[in-house]
Structures are given as structure tokens and as C-alpha cells.
Design a protein around this nucleic acid. Structure first.
Length: 471
RNA sequence: UCCCGAGUAGCUCAGCCGGUUAGAGCACCUGACUGUUAAUCAGGGGGUCGUCAGUUCGAGCCUGACCUCGGGAGCCA
């Protein structure tokens, strides 16, 4: 609130009933629609992002600029409206602003080509105008819910004694094994320095060695876990995979809790409590936005969150899951066999058809999972888990970490990793090692699921994907 | 990266068997109308049919290449 304008209020507050009727207030925002009434007055719906609903500003013909300006307002114009907050005489809203003055702050050049019209737009079109799409109902709601989820994540962990650890965005670990990485370099691409063998000489580069954008904060956060006991990362993550799907981004946000003195069971329990806490927070705090998604985007949006919260997660051992799939009364495009990773169609069958609620699949074959996952007593599986949810598939992947140095070394050798690149990681097993576990959750996938969106590119303000980094 | 599909007005789409001047709804502009809320009603303006090449007397429509977008798969979060 500006000091010179103490009467300015957020539209959220003006509509909530917290401000006494008859109070003179000023609202500032952007015009959604204008309707001219036969009574010689206009209704201007104004939005400022503070809540789902716009406020209805009633503009009487007596306003000095009624004919010259008010009657020419179009979607997207910015305005400041001052008047009396009154109970609405019309249906559709409890309060409205009886305007005494409307100042136009910014006009829309060429209203006909202004991309955001008061009509349904396709999500595909809106992706082309990412800087303006947040002015729509849908993306305003996504933005508020994304914020709500982020706040709930921090609150969940903080309430349980977790510390938020900011792991580095730039990494020099060249073999994290989580996929293609984006190179970070200040070398002149047109004039690369060469070493004695003719290879690019990264000793000349900014960090004196090869550097990349992080693909996961896990290894770094493990170190903090083994001192702070309960920690989590929540930050940007980068994958240079050439994957063009509704579930992948080149730049996304990831949440990675890590807990010490914990096994896979504790990890799964944490994942379950975590997801339920987030969903409950969204239902409690963003009922207006969720009602919109249930109405316009995904009919079951609210119901399935309520159902998710009320359902205990099913736990299925990977080996049992393979049996279930082998006996499934339907055919799969990909064969089911012990030792093979579960395909998307398998995961969806398990969670959507076989169980009908969230499923945690545990103890996968060791050769299809990462080197840091703890080898089970059977010697052929690791303490890994995937949380599968109806309608989205895999939403969380996690594991108990290998805390035994000799086993870890053997695993790294098996995976063809150079132990010299992991000395600091090995130190964690040499100095006071303890059982610990954690998981990773793609933040945007959570947003997609909660809002009922069909494409992850609509869950982040400015999506980055192969061949796509505009704005 | 692979497999499908689609590009026509600002947006969403129609466009017959290849045939005269490419249409509709919304949006926009003008006007009418005693409180509207997807306001309504009347009128109006608005097009390099993704790009390039080809077939043909004639291409929005057929052929090829390319570009872009979408869906699915793989990879994964």
C-alpha cells in the first residue's frame, strides 16, 4: 500500500466482507470485461490477482470521463477506481464498487489484436503469449495455487524440524548419472583452448574444470542430512534431455527431502504425509481456484484430492507388482518381466485400475536403479520406491541410500563411475555414517496434478523445453 | 529421438469431387436498449489459406521438402 493512498485495498479484501459496506476505497487492477447497461451505466470487472474473482465496478454515466473513456475500456486496460464499497444490487457477487472516479492508467493498443480476450482460449495459444497468459482466469489460478503449494511445502518441512538447504545450481560433478546436463562455460566457443592432446582445455574455463547446471541436489543435501538430520532442497533443476512430452521440462523445480536414521519405510511414510499435507493445504486455502479447475479444466480436480487425502497408500513390492501385471486381465504393449523397469502403462494400471488409489512400489531390481540406492539383503534388489498416483503416474521417486562404504564402492565400480570424483561423497560413509533416505518430487508435476492440467508447460510461468525458451 | 495428427481473420473453427468474389461464432468499431455479469439486438471493418517448390486450363483443397505446434512413446521428476 502506498503511503499517499491509504484507502487502496486488494480486491480480495474488498470482496471478502472484511471491509464495512459504505467504506470509500480505491482498487487498482486490470479490466477483464466491460458491460454497458441500458440504464446508462457500465459494469467494469477488474482483477488484481489477489483472488479468483474480479470486482464489479459500477460506473455511472455521471462520471466526467464516462463517454470519453469509461465506455471505451477493453480487456487489459489498467485502471484505478475509487468509490463506495456496497452490497451488490445484482446477482453474482456480494459486493461491488460504486465508482465516484475511474482513472485509466494504461490503455490497450489495438484492442482487436490484444491476445487475451474475454473468451475461452486454447492452452496451446496461451503458451505463445506466456507473458500475458497470467491475465486469464486459468493462469491466475495456477499462479496462486503454485504459490500456495510452495508455501505449504516449506511449512510442512519446517513444522517437522527440517532445514531448507540451498544446494548449488552449478555443479562440477561430471557424472551424476541423472541424464544429460547443460554445460556452464565462459570459454569462447569460436576459439577454444586446447591441451597437449588437443582436447578442450577446461583448466582455462571459469571454474578451472568442466561445470554444469545441476540435475539434482541430492548428493549435496545428503552431506547436510548427515549433520542436520532432517533437510530438504527446493530449487531449480535442469535436464538437457531431448524429451518432448507433457511431463518434462528442461528447467523445473524439485523438492528433495533427506532424513537421517531412517529406512525406506520411513521414507514412504514421509512421502505420504507430505503429499496429503500439500493437498489439504490447497483445498483449505484455494477453494476459489480449485472450484474453477473443477468447473472448467478437470471435473474431478477437487474430488480426487479429497480421495487422495482419505486413502492410505497401498504398498506393493516390485516383485509382487510384476506378478500382478502378469496376471492382469488385459494386454500391455510392453512385456512384463522381472528385471525390467515398469512402463508408464504398467504404472497406470497398478494405480488406476488394480488399486484405484496411490501406490508405493518398493524394492526394484538393483541394475535398473541408481548406484547410491541401498542394496537389499537379497543382493538383487535395492531399497527404492516410486509413488504412483491415479491420473499422473509416477510423482515421487526415492530410496534408502547406501550407507556402507564397501558396498557403495562396489556399486560405483559396477556402474563404471570413477570413485575419485566422489571422494567427498565417500567421506560421508567414512565419518559417522548412518542409515538415511530421501525422495525427489517434481514441483511442476505436483502443480499439474493438483490443477488438473494436461501439460507441464502450463504449470510454470515460462516453460523451457527443447527448442523452446522464449520470454 | 521415434510414431501419429494439425497449420484458413486477433481467437476457435467450417470450407463439398480441384472451379466465379474464402465463410461462421467470439473479439474489435459504430449505433440501440431503465442493473449487467459469456449481457442482448442491428450494422461495419478485418485474410500472403504455415513456407518454398511442383502437378493442373485452374490449388485453401493434390504431390514433395522444410518450418511450427499438438498428442503418444522412450528417458525421467
Amino acid at each position: 500500500m502506498e503511503p499517499h493512498d491509504m484507502s487502496q485495498v486488494a480486491i480480495k479484501d474488498a470482496l471478502s466482507g472484511r471491509i464495512e459496506a459504505g467504506t470509500t476505497v480505491t482498487i487498482k487492477g486490470w479490466v477483464r470485461t466491460r458491460r454497458d447497461s441500458k440504464a446508462g451505466l457500465s459494469f467494469v470487472n477488474v482483477s488484481d490477482g489477489s483472488c479468483f474473482d474480479p470486482i464489479q465496478v459500477v460506473a455511472p454515466a455521471e462520471l466526467a470521463n464516462y463517454d470519453s473513456e469509461v465506455r471505451h475500456l477493453t480487456s487489459g486496460c489498467s485502471v484505478s477506481a475509487t468509490g463506495t464499497l456496497v452490497p451488490s444490487q445484482g446477482k453474482g457477487q456480494a459486493f461491488e464498487l460504486q465508482a465516484a472516479a475511474i482513472e485509466v492508467l494504461g490503455w490497450v493498443d489495438d484492442p482487436e489484436t490484444y491476445p487475451i480476450q474475454p473468451k475461452p482460449h486454447s492452452m496451446e495459444f496461451l503458451r505463445e503469449v506466456a507473458h500475458l497468459r497470467v491475465r486469464t482466469n486459468t493462469f491466475g489460478a495456477v499462479t496462486r495455487i503454485r504459490h500456495c503449494i510452495a508455501q505449504a511445502i516449506h511449512r510442512f518441512f519446517s513444522e517437522r524440524g527440517f532445514y531448507w538447504v540451498n544446494t548449488p545450481i552449478i555443479t562440477t560433478s561430471d557424472a551424476e548419472g541423472a541424464g544429460q546436463m547443460f554445460r556452464v562455460s565462459t570459454l569462447d566457443l569460436a576459439n577454444l583452448p586446447r591441451d597437449e592432446k588437443g582436447r578442450i582445455d577446461f583448466r582455462e574455463d571459469f571454474f578451472g574444470r568442466e561445470a554444469f547446471l545441476t540435475v539434482s541436489g541430492q548428493l549435496n543435501v545428503e552431506a547436510y542430512c548427515l549433520a542436520m538430520s532432517k533437510v530438504y532442497t527446493f530449487g531449480p533443476t535442469f535436464r538437457a534431455e531431448n524429451s518432448n512430452t507433457t511431463r518434462h521440462l528442461a528447467e523445473f523445480w524439485m523438492v528433495e527431502p533427506e532424513i537421517a536414521f531412517a529406512d525406506l519405510d520411513d521414507d514412504a511414510n514421509l512421502a505420504e504425509a507430505f503429499l496429503k499435507y500439500i493437498f489439504k493445504a490447497v483445498l483449505d486455502e484455494r477453494g476459489d481456484d480449485m472450484a474453477f479447475f473443477a468447473d472448467k479444466i478437470e471435473k474431478t480436480a477437487i474430488r480426487r484430492l479429497e480421495s487422495f487425502i482419505a486413502s492410505p497408500f497401498e504398498r506393493i513390492d516390485y516383485t509382487d507388482a510384476v506378478d500382478i501385471l502378469a496376471k492382469a486381465p488385459r494386454k500391455f504393449d510392453f512385456p512384463v518381466a522381472w528385471g525390467a523397469d515398469l512402463q508408464t502403462e504398467h504404472e497406470r494400471y497398478l494405480t488406476e485400475e488394480h488399486v484405484g488409489r496411490p501406490v508405493v512400489v518398493t524394492n526394484y531390481p538393483e541394475h535398473i536403479k541408481s548406484f547410491y540406492m541401498r542394496l537389499n539383503e537379497d543382493g538383487r534388489t535395492v531399497a527404492a520406491m516410486d509413488v504412483l498416483a491415479p491420473g499422473i503416474g509416477e510423482i515421487i521417486g526415492g530410496s534408502q541410500r547406501e550407507e556402507r562404504l564397501d558396498v557403495l564402492d562396489a556399486r560405483m565400480k559396477q556402474f563404471g563411475l570413477d570413485a575419485s570424483h566422489y571422494e567427498w561423497y565417500r567421506d560421508l560413509r567414512r565419518y559417522g555414517t548412518v542409515p538415511h533416505a530421501g525422495f525427489g518430487l517434481g514441483f511442476e508435476r505436483l502443480v499439474v496434478y493438483i490443477c488438473g492440467l494436461g501439460n507441464i508447460r502450463d504449470a510454470i510461468p515460462y516453460p523451457r523445453a527443447p527448442g523452446s525458451a522464449e520470454f
